[in-house]
Design a protein around this nucleic acid. Sequence first.
DNA 1: AGATGAGCGGTTTTT
DNA 2: CCGCTCATCT
Length: 734
Amino acid sequence: MTKNPLNERQQRAVTSPTNQILVLAGPGSGKTRVLTHRIAHLVQGGVAPYRILAVTFTNKAAREMETRLENMLGGKANGVWLGTFHATCARILRREALPGSSLPFDTRFVIMDADDQLSIVRRAIKELNISDKLFRPNAVLSAISNAKNNLILPQDFAARSYRDEVILRVYQRYQQSLQSSNALDFDDLLLWVVRLFSANPEVQNRYAHQFEYVLVDEFQDTNRVQYELLRQLSSAYGNLFVVGDEDQSIYRWRGADYRNVLRFEKDYPRCEKILLEQNYRSTQTVLDAARGVIDQNRNRTRKHLSSARAEKGKQIVLFEAVDDHEEAEYVVSTIQRALRDKLAEGADFAIMYRTNAQSRVLEEAFLSAGLPYRLVGAQRFYGRREIKDMIAYLRLVYNPSDDVSLGRVINVPARHIGDKTVEALQEAARSAGISAGELLLELGAPEPEAAFNGLLPARIHGVLQPFARHLHEWHNQLDSASLPALFDRILEDTNYQAWLDDGTDEGTDRWANVLELRKLAFDYETRGLEAFLENLALVSDQDTLPEENNAATLLTLHAAKGLEFDRVFIIGMDDGLLPHSRSKDDEEEMAEERRLFYVGLTRAKNQIYLVRAERRSTYGSYEYSTPSQFLEDIPRSLVQESGKVKPVRRVVNPAWDETMTWGRVPQAPASARTPQPALQSRYKATMRVRHPSWGDGVILESRIEDGEETVDVHFESVGFKRLLASLAKLEILS
DNA sequence: AGATGAGCGGTTTTT
DNA sequence: CCGCTCATCT
């Protein structure tokens, strides 16, 4: 693909001299390629790399662009500001949060992750004597995040109801906690840059004059803060190049607003709009199916994606399993068969699902089949208790004011510091006007300042002393010792291994995780603790997970955006899962669910498998569901069904042939069926056969199911089919 | 202070 | 079903 020349429109997008350019790029239309080529074009035209800012949505996308630029230009593009919104903002704030700035934190701020945020909210709710039943911490946090995404700080928050009043109070307390911990949450990173720029035009100007060119990926998923930020950053030169696709907007719940695309056209009436509709990824079958789905959405620019590839491609396979276990087994066995027949390799496959919870059953099936897989996202590594502990230690050493981290590790491993002791410490710190961590640091000094003597009762002081001393020593090492040395020192001083690795399998496992993190710390030996912590906070886990060799990928539909795979399974094609039940009352949300499905479909280069289960276990009991309504929008001619025999279901979509049945071969009710003696297989694996319409193929497997012989055949023309031997008119060739 | 066990609530999606 | 919180006991 890299060898191909750019098509005419891509070329235009890369070289156009227009100031503001809006590229509407369908899936697989070479969007990343256009972005990287444009950056390369700018650099080769003499623009200094540091004057180019390119913003991506994920770290992964940023790294991929970096690699491509490296390949194109060697080191010539080094220095381009390339990163996510959040990483870019963190970088700006680390420079600007100097003493005397208007910002309520200094350059040693730490970044709170979702867990930290939630524990701050919980604490605030508790301290304010609010019921956490009526005000769910999660809901309150999302209200706060929502406000921040709209640039609303507590002082700007207009409470229009009792509920708002309460949320506001929590918000205030929450913000205070962050401030006293010298911490920022994700939303703050963006918010404070915008506030900084608004309050200090000279600072904004400095950056705006630095960034002669601003380029943005996944523009449809920007929110209001991000839009504002882009406006500010490009305000000097007005060179703003944005790439996006309304149809792939899937982050509305996070404040993203694809109408930013419309806003862009309105705010920059002289912008040039370029449509990329030539698809270089998928077969026409994949595109037709995707189009059938997305064309049901209104209020969008209709695109006419056409495949640059000649072949129509394999039909879409639809499989209905009886339950989620069979669903997973179907995925695994289909992959195994393809591997065995050398039709594909592991890394060609991706299995996508709506909710993270669905990965569990899949993982079990992969494990028991001995099939390698890699799971992206889902807090696998960084959510681990032992990992969070070690990170908390490091964060605390870096920034002793970090209350959340202090609370996490002050008594881990247990060192007789209970709630009462912590409370006394906090009270004493408050009366001294410093944070608890700072006070500890002081108490651990060889000669603490006299002012801090007598703040605490002698007994409590004594209990805290050993920990305080350690903290002081670690903190002192910050500038002299390397990160790995500090890491080891903490492990040693806390006796962490002995505490964690208690001889059980789980303990060994946990210790192995710590060693994994330690390995990562060695990678940051030269860059240091600050870079290490920032990376841990901002880089999602998909980046750092050890790459399993040639393994299938398990990921949510959200995480799939921007990726491509040869063969894609989308599982859980059930009403209530996709579209998700939480979306069904809201038209906008339903449209977003549809886009999510569209994103999944368009990841496939060659083959799509849509899989559902009639029932799946949730919380221990079974729940039944009907097929996803989205399935009805896929043209019938593109689909080939597969699965176990079960009662006929009628299809409601008039686009389908009335006489067609859904999912199954029709069959008499069970009661009318006479049990048949086990019958002999007529077909065996490796036999060559001929089908009247599909031509020649080879039998992959034959088995007796419910008294019927079922054969899996791979046809040269259409690929994999599962057939009932009694119905298919197969001719045996060899 | 720490260990144990009953009870409960939770699942959308992520930088 | 699982993991977490809270209450109770040692």
